[in-house]
Design a protein around this nucleic acid. Structure first.
Lengths: 202, 202
DNA sequence: TGTCATTAGTGACTCCACTCATAACTGAGC
DNA sequence: GCTCAGTTATGAGTGGAGTCACTAATGACA
């Protein structure tokens, strides 16, 4: 992640250090109090930079949340992908991918939901949004790979079903009704929906 | 809609008139310029009321949008439900329900997407949000009814599949990637997903 | 009609995300 | 070193959603 190109100028080094301070500050404050209860001022102060400087590194507060959470999401996906390898039953394998993602998203419910909101409604041309979307696409691919294990399902159908499955996952996590539900309830709910998708016609 | 209980006090009448002026003003301004480019001040001015008064009738700007759009959504659902009755093919029937909803949502893309955002992420205890959610539930029921026409699908499965189908519909409308897509493209996209859902196992 | 508790209306104000004119810094060329 | 074009940093300022302490209106009752 933190690659260090052989000898970079003071300028570059300074920029990097500042970005790191920003991520550290935002990460800590968001985790502690939830994104809604943290002001950009507080983040700037904690990172020891001016207000305007913050917005040089993240165009919006939302992007700041993506900046912090993308890494966690990515890691969760990797864990899930690995876990799914050893599992034969298709629904179990799909859930093995989904579980860490949901757990990660639910570490702090409000932040998780805000993250999803940004993902869907944020400006997709912003680099951090694009990154989040790209991880979501990889999640879909991982699901598709599992679905396509079954010989009776074509690659094309598997891709579409994976898309549907990830829609189900995202909306179940985002839904206001589920805001107070615990992770296991959510997972059970998702499993019900995924099961019907895959079961149909057996 | 505008029921008039036999003789109500001046107070009640005044409140109603004010609400109507607010809805009219918000409706016109939102349609003309898009919700993001209209300030609550402008709505208050157009409705000829004070700033604070506006928030007596709608707790947030988002709620104001729901107030305006819920009626359209409801009407679209009714049209779709009626259209679906005469259609034999299951996917065609589902799409008959979905089409007017998508068309209605896309009259003004930004407003449509903001409406969806409010629906999912807004405070579900607010009456207007609750109303929107209730219409969404009825949409789901309508879809479930069509899916359940097929004898080989249980009522329970039909309900779950309907939920999945409406997730697909909502996320396809909301997705940032589709923000610039036209209505027919969206509908085709939704149809692809719904088809696979229903086709599976035939 | 006058009193009064309750409900509705108000706009100056607060809070916060984000901007922008200006200043400071960096490093390449000399 | 010195200059200067480009880049980065800054915080006072701006715009807009939402609040609140206060005022006005209403109607129930005497």
């Amino acid at each position: 992640m933190t690659e260090a190109p052989i000898s970079m100028g003071r300028r570059e080094r300074n920029k990097r250090a500042k970005l790191e301070r920003i991520v550290a500050a935002a990460s800590a404050l968001f985790a502690e109090r939830g994104a809604d209860d943290v002001t950009t001022q507080q983040i700037a102060d904690a990172a020891d930079i001016g207000t305007g400087t913050l917005f040089l590194y993240a165009k919006t507060k939302g992007e700041l949340l993506l900046l912090v959470q993308n890494a966690h999401y990515e890691e969760a996906l990797e864990r899930g992908r690995a876990a799914a390898d050893g599992i034969g039953d298709p629904v179990d394998a799909l859930m093995a991918i989904i579980r860490p993602v949901v757990e990660c998203n639910r570490v702090q419910v409000d932040n998780g939901r805000t993250y999803l909101r940004e993902m869907v409604f944020g400006d997709p041309t912003e680099p951090r949004h694009a990154e989040a979307l790209e991880i979501a696409l990889r999640t879909e691919s991982a699901l598709a790979a599992v679905i396509a294990r079954r010989p009776e399902i074509s690659e094309a159908d598997a891709a579409v079903l994976a898309r549907v499955a990830s829609s189900v996952m995202f909306l179940t996590m985002a839904a206001g009704v589920n805001a107070t539900a615990d992770t296991e309830t959510l997972l059970a709910d998702i499993r019900t929906q995924i099961s019907v998708l895959t079961r149909r016609g057996e």
